[in-house]
């Protein structure tokens, strides 16, 4: 039978382009400031700006109509944004636009902050890593961004600059929701600062993807463990989860429960359960709620194992 009621559904008049269709890339201007001061001046000129670091997200977003701008500000000609290195106090200072490949190819970075390399070396394929930056990966504010959870357990802080000065904030305070960060339109991320890691500590990051490369995390976890002097107790821990909430999440209760415990499967399993408790994921083409909650637990345990091994190697 023909269901007449359905066939004669009400017409929906659409004025202008349909919002569900991808919009074409509209024309924009390109500026390439040579200094931070010049960049801040562009940010303050009243036009809608987007920042271009590696471009592997923003160029695609512009092309697919997911973002638009009057001007695209290329940050790659600002020397301090492209540099990275260890400060005298041991802080790893990474210019926000420095390419990931340069970072993870650095032997000193690999030796001193391997958890950062865990994340930096799996964002996209090799061609993406030649361009993509920590700053872009963070500011894009994807809940699944690989660098976020790794930097959160490393205690990274962000140096934010604008025409009126600079400020610092913990990396976890950058994220406001899927694709939304807490920066003001006048601000830009200048530097990611990873403090020297505690003695007898190790950190590890991993994600779960259905393929072996080129996927967005279905879920991810980072962990850092600090051991006591004898190595038989956990002194402190940090755990962060990706892709299981609107932003990357710190799993505080799970981390706190590890303090004072014997490092090993029993404690890790409990931490895994607690970590899953903070997960508030969605179901989409990449995974389901139940799957992601379970993965949060599994990956937490695996991240803790990796962190423990590194902590022991550090002793």
């Amino acid at each position: 039978m023909i269901d007449r009621a359905r066939v004669t559904a009400q017409p929906v008049a659409l004025l202008g382009p349909n919002p569900t269709l991808r919009m074409p890339v509209e024309a924009f201007d390109y500026v390439a400031p040579r200094s931070l001061a010049e960049a801040y001046a562009h940010l303050g000129n009243g036009r809608t700006s987007l920042l271009l670091a590696g471009g592997t997200d923003v160029i695609v977003q512009l092309r697919e109509g997911r973002k638009r701008c009057d001007q695209l500000i290329d940050l790659k000609h600002i020397p301090e944004l492209m540099r990275f290195g260890f400060a005298p106090d041991g802080t790893l200072e990474v210019g926000a636009a420095a390419p990931l490949a340069a970072l993870y190819e650095d032997a000193e970075v690999l030796r001193r902050v391997p958890a950062l390399v865990d994340a930096a070396s799996i964002i996209g394929g090799t061609a993406i890593q030649s361009r993509a930056s920590l700053g872009g990966n963070l500011c894009n504010a994807s809940p699944a961004a690989d660098s976020s959870a790794a930097l959160m357990v490393l205690g990274a802080r962000l140096l934010i600059g604008s025409a009126s000065g600079t400020r610092e904030l913990p990396v976890e305070e950058l994220f406001a929701g899927p694709g939304v960060n807490t920066l003001q339109p006048s601000e830009l991320l200048v530097q990611v600062r990873i403090p020297p890691q505690p003695p007898r500590s190790g950190a590890f990051y991993l994600r779960f993807i259905p393929r072996n490369e080129m996927d967005i995390a279905v879920a991810s976890a980072g962990a850092r463990l600090e051991l006591n002097a004898t190595g038989d107790r956990i002194e402190g821990a940090r755990i962060a989860l990706g892709a299981v909430g609107p932003t990357p999440l710190m799993a505080k209760a799970a981390a706190e429960a590890l303090a004072g415990e014997v490092p090993g499967e029993e404690a890790f399993a409990r931490a895994g359960e607690l970590a899953a408790g903070v997960a508030s994921p969605i179901t989409d083409m990449r995974g389901s709620v139940a799957q992601r909650k379970r993965l949060a637990s599994v990956l937490t345990v695996r991240a803790l194992r990796g962190a423990l091994q590194r902590a022991r190697e550090a002793r």
Binding site: P11, V12, A13, L15, N18, V25
Partner: peptide
């Protein structure tokens, strides 16, 4: 191609949406 894409976006289509 960019102009063609922009212009295609300006075509107005009225639909009666069906389940």
């Amino acid at each position: 191609p960019h102009i063609a894409e922009e212009a295609a976006g300006r075509i107005r289509v009225e639909y009666a949406v069906l389940p």
